[in-house]
Design a protein around this nucleic acid. Sequence first.
DNA 1: TTTAGCACTCATTACCTTTGAGTGCTAAGC
DNA 2: GCTTAGCACTCAAAGGTAATGAGTGCTAAA
Lengths: 355, 355
Amino acid sequence: MNVELTERKKKVLRSVVDLYIRTAEPVGSKLIAELPDMQYSSATIRSEMADLLAMGYLEQPHTSAGRVPSAAGYRLYVDELMAEYRLSLDETKSISSAIEEKMQKVDKMVEKVAKLVSQATDLPAISVASRYGGATVSRFDLILAGQGSIILVLMLSSDEVVNKLIKLPVQLEENDLKLLAALLNATMTELPVEEFNQALLERVMRSAGAGASLVPIVMEFVVDTLNRQGSTNMAVAGQMRLLGQPEYRDVDKAQRLMTSLDEEALSNLPAVMQNTNGTQILVGPEHVARELKDTSVVMTRFDIGDGMQGMIGVVGPTRMDYAKVTARLSYFAESLSKMFAKPEQPQLPEAGKEE
Amino acid sequence: MNVELTERKKKVLRSVVDLYIRTAEPVGSKLIAELPDMQYSSATIRSEMADLLAMGYLEQPHTSAGRVPSAAGYRLYVDELMAEYRLSLDETKSISSAIEEKMQKVDKMVEKVAKLVSQATDLPAISVASRYGGATVSRFDLILAGQGSIILVLMLSSDEVVNKLIKLPVQLEENDLKLLAALLNATMTELPVEEFNQALLERVMRSAGAGASLVPIVMEFVVDTLNRQGSTNMAVAGQMRLLGQPEYRDVDKAQRLMTSLDEEALSNLPAVMQNTNGTQILVGPEHVARELKDTSVVMTRFDIGDGMQGMIGVVGPTRMDYAKVTARLSYFAESLSKMFAKPEQPQLPEAGKEE
DNA sequence: TTTAGCACTCATTACCTTTGAGTGCTAAGC
DNA sequence: GCTTAGCACTCAAAGGTAATGAGTGCTAAA
């Protein structure tokens, strides 16, 4: 359809989007004409805007109102027109120091990241972490803990360590445990989840001797853990920030969007994870989702070590400050990747420091 | 001031509150007169209501409007007038089955409970868990995990088990670890957090031999863990549900309340924890908090085993269905207490079940 | 090709009127 | 002496109309 926009048209379009992002009000020709670096009169702007309207880049809420960017307009804006937003030193600093505070476990981390991103962008944020490879157990340990309690420690291929306290009616000796641990290590390490079946259970139990009654419990826990590992972990934070946006003064609208977030986001994101890995922007109706029409999503991937990848994103009105949001999100992703790249520096002896 | 209310006045007051809770609209004399078990005419009701107004139990938004309960009116209502709400079988079932799904760790649990409570009451909910006694380490274990990695396993006095993967540049033998573990168990168990000081560190390091470089790392982790154990854990969920309430159609109001929740709740709750341990209801201006005027809080304690106590509560408009909310909350608290009372039933061998 | 000018459109706002729910008071009834 | 019917009065909410003004489209001149 349209071959190419003239430079002037682009300039006008950019101005419209910029202004609309700032004010959330339809922008008129006069306003643009008064912009410092705009050398044409409002009449000229008017005719340019009429063209842009015809081309589908702008929309008109009603006859005598200013113009508003259409979805296509936003698309063009984010793809070509948008000025790079340069993060100020303050901004990078506050993001970095926020991330600095060590994140403990992965599931906790996901929540914290969501919260931080939401804070940094003043929009609702989503954070997802998921493993691509299935983890396996790389090592079993059994520790006797007194009064018939046993601690089961699993070390996973992902270098994570999980444990479970098992209270057994049976009395077991230190030696029984050693034997059982050896057996488990011999038969159950490096196995993907799928292979933990009834057959394996029976085979192992037969050789287990005194500790046989422990085996099913161990297996259940292993399967549980590996499944949990494989699953996706996601968190939403700062939903309330939507209310700060003028387009969601309508409570019903805000509510509808927010309730759809939990389920909706989930179904959308896998698709994105497989695609490009820069920052991705979904504008309005491009969504698969049903009623997120005047809503946009900006998201970025980041690397976590150990076979995991993460994604952070924000949700907001189509009229959001894409430049700023993108910049902050990217910086966030970068910082996170960096942080995970040097995990748990071989720590130098230094005690008593607290978060 | 007022000595006692006549039965009839009480009946009228109860009707006003009941109706207002249902409709969120000022209630007029005619409406009450038409109530099935009300044997007086609207004129009589009117004069009774005038009295109640004078006594401060009712308020009048404007001259020609119906009446609305005042804070004092709500207070009287929840203290004396409120009819017990009987949970239906359906309700108890859905609450129970929601809780049934095992909650893993305490911090995860807090969030889950908040979510469940919010769901059950359709209001924003808070959930807090905190330990009263300081935990101690009751057992140390060190496990060699290949490539210079060591797994440190702590068993706490609360029966929780935590671990940490330590990557050390130094190479340590199985035997070194055994010795170190024995040393740690001899010197660092049963100690409250406060005693982990520089002196202890130095003393232990002196006797540690080959594993000396590990000691500071272990200690840092221990201190960290014990502090975390002592700290309060709290979660807020379902903030968005506020928007469903007509009094918070005003977005600004909802937003103000919600932002104040995070900090405010924190400062309020300790006070309550120490007080009564039934269900407690804070009505409107009784709050310590600043701008929670037409907001009430209903909360209940519940027992977690192992030196912990929990609290669940909801936040909502003063006009909330106290009876229903209280009933559900109490049932929740009971179920939770019960669940924690029989933790981790000595499990019978049974494998392959998943959540 | 650009711009000034002007008639026109239409959402928003302000202002006024109407409506009706609900009250307070008084006088009659039980 | 309670209770209740009746009635004038109040006032928020709803509806309807007019004024306002931002912004447009078009035309004619520069």
